[in-house]
Design a binder for these strands. Structure first.
Lengths: 227, 227
DNA sequence: ACCTGAACACCGTTCAAGT
DNA sequence: ACCTGAACACCGTTCAAGT
């Protein structure tokens, strides 16, 4: 038996689901959803495309894992928050910011309601709504309204991100969007043309939050009346 | 010059964008989004796949036209409604029912905020919000909340439809969904497990409408306070 | 057990060639 | 002007063959 002063080093670059997901996120962030192919991923990881299937069931599994990774980080920051209304706003804002940083997450959340990322958001909102003291019969509807609103914003932000090059910043994005709406037929689209003037310089993060508050106000108004 | 008693009959099956869109909708409704390929569409229209590009820019143009066709029919039924609150509910319900009948429309609405189908919904909601008397500064936020909620439901219904075979009816769908949520980890997902009991037999059309009402209540409560 | 990469069965889109 | 359908440049996924 030959003296083994050093056992074979564990390959630091060995494949694993975590490494694959990490690389996938890097591609998605850098070049968008269309750039994530098994070929591109395999090249980046210096392996064959078939090797990825050892760790990942298929592409939807990969995307679900990537979204779960991002949303999981958001949800883990909730430990300290006990006030339910604040927790709801924190979850919502956390999701908003995550989608702002990773627009593909927005599209992914709309793709499969049973993926972990979606379930985490569903449960996070629901449990705080219970804690908020919304009467049990009203909880389901209130939860549905909040969750669908959040998902709608998520999907729409993902779509907006697809409309423009990845490096477009907030203000030029809003300017371009406003310019397009301003060109709509005045007879057919008076409202959108009017709103287009408010688009530049408006804070959509703030607007998102005021939507949450609007729904919370509706919930509290309605359940107060029912009490 | 030979006597032409009959001029060449206009081919009743000549291609046109309308016929292509109609055939695309038929495929989408019958076999789902994945079944719509240019090859399948060309076969159904008894032509070559390249011919379609004479009438349609590309696949996203085709999908946008198909969604516009469906949503256009919904919006055309609004002429008689003058009461703005009722008009908003009618637009929302119309979109809901259209997506229920054509789930792919839900996915398509989330894909491009500048397509005609989206703009029609955006404008329809916005103009009634003005008519409702929501103060101008509050209109933008109120509009955003309603529209994102509607889109969220649209996207989620499309996703739910993808989870199950196309012929699954409402009640078995809810039963299966409930069964899945009931199997979630009790420690991690207490709320979803509790809600799963309410899933069978609940009316999601009614729930959708109560979400609209919740938001409208929030809007009216907030603008009343500001007045 | 894990990895390789060619092969398979598809796509959307283009385009020379036809009528 | 309109249509045909092969060809091109891709995909996701599988799988025999390697280590």
């Amino acid at each position: 038996m030959k003296p083994k002063t050093q056992r074979p080093e564990r390959r630091t670059d060995a494949l694993s689901k975590e490494r694959i997901v990490e690389a996938a996120i890097a591609i998605l962030d850098a070049d968008g959803e269309a750039a994530l192919t098994f070929r591109a991923l395999a090249t980046r990881l210096a392996t064959g495309s078939g090797a990825l299937y050892w760790y990942v069931t298929d592409k939807s599994d990969l995307l679900a894992a990537a979204a779960d990774d991002v949303i999981g980080r958001v949800m883990s920051k909730l430990a300290g928050i006990t006030e339910p209304r604040e927790a709801i706003r924190t979850i919502a804002l956390g999701a908003f910011d995550a989608i702002d940083a990773h627009p593909w997450v927005g599209a992914q959340l709309l793709r499969d309601p049973e993926q972990p990322a979606s379930l985490q958001i569903f449960e996070g909102i629901g449990s705080r709504l219970q804690a908020l003291g919304v009467p049990t019969p009203a909880q389901f509807d209130a939860w549905s309204a909040l969750v669908h609103y959040i998902l709608g914003v998520a999907g729409q932000n993902a779509a907006n991100a697809r409309l423009f090059p990845r490096d477009t910043d907030r203000s030029t994005f809003l300017d371009k969007m406003a310019a397009r709406w301003a060109q709509l037929d005045p007879a057919g689209y008076p409202f959108l043309r009017q709103v287009s003037a408010q688009l530049p310089g408006h804070d959509d993060r703030e607007q998102f939050l005021s939507g949450i508050d609007l729904i919370l106000a509706g919930i509290e108004g309605t359940s107060a009346r029912q009490r």
